[in-house]
């Protein structure tokens, strides 16, 4: 299962962006980009940093959702010598699961992971949704950094993966 590699790649891209900003700044090159940017370096640098961190959280969540589904399919595909009928039912179930709200899928995992942890993953989803829409009427949910998003999402998948491999 390549979720660790995929999640790591997102983190590496975020680090690359940080290093790129450093290199630009150290060489004093940002000022020469344009008059508008040159006169507002601090503003654009801060905005750039915040936006790239937000995009990182969105990317991490997308990978998490994809692998959560993949791991869930592994539970369904347990029977190797399945009949034709059984395989057909399995395929139909997989098709339906893809359309489930992610919250319902996460709730299933309360069987093996405590509800507080599942709740924490749902909070990350709410924050991810808020980053997408930024609906000020709804107010900001609990915040999380991209580093902690990586840690909590990868640990969650690790526990599911370990349960499958028992």
């Amino acid at each position: 299962m390549g979720y660790i590699e995929d999640l790591n790649e997102v983190i590496q891209i975020q680090r690359f962006q940080t290093e790129l900003r450093k290199a630009f700044s150290e060489r004093n090159q940002i000022k020469s980009l344009s008059k508008e940017i040159g006169e507002n370096i601090e503003y654009y640098s801060k905005e750039f940093k915040e936006k790239t961190e937000e995009y990182t959280i969105l990317q991490l969540w997308t990978i998490f959702e994809r692998y959560l589904l993949e791991l869930t399919y592994e539970y369904i595909h347990g029977e190797k010598e399945a009949s034709k009928m059984s395989r057909m039912i399995t395929e139909k179930m997989i098709e339906k699961i893809e359309r489930w709200p992610i919250g319902e899928l996460l709730d299933l995992y309360k069987t093996i992971i405590d509800s507080n942890t599942v709740g924490m993953i749902k909070q990350i989803k709410r924050y991810r949704d808020w980053l997408v829409h930024k609906n000020t009427k709804k107010g900001s949910p609990g915040k999380i950094s991209y580093e902690d998003t990586y840690i909590f999402l990868s640990d969650f998948l690790n526990f599911i993966s370990a349960d499958l491999n028992r």
């Binding site: 503003y43 940093k49 405590d114 942890t117 526990f159």
Partner: peptide, 22 residues
Amino acid sequence: THYENRKFLYFKDGGPVITTKI
């Protein structure tokens, strides 16, 4: 600064835990 930051988090003793029920 505007360019780089470090995050300080307030944790209770032990920090966050994941409880499994296997």
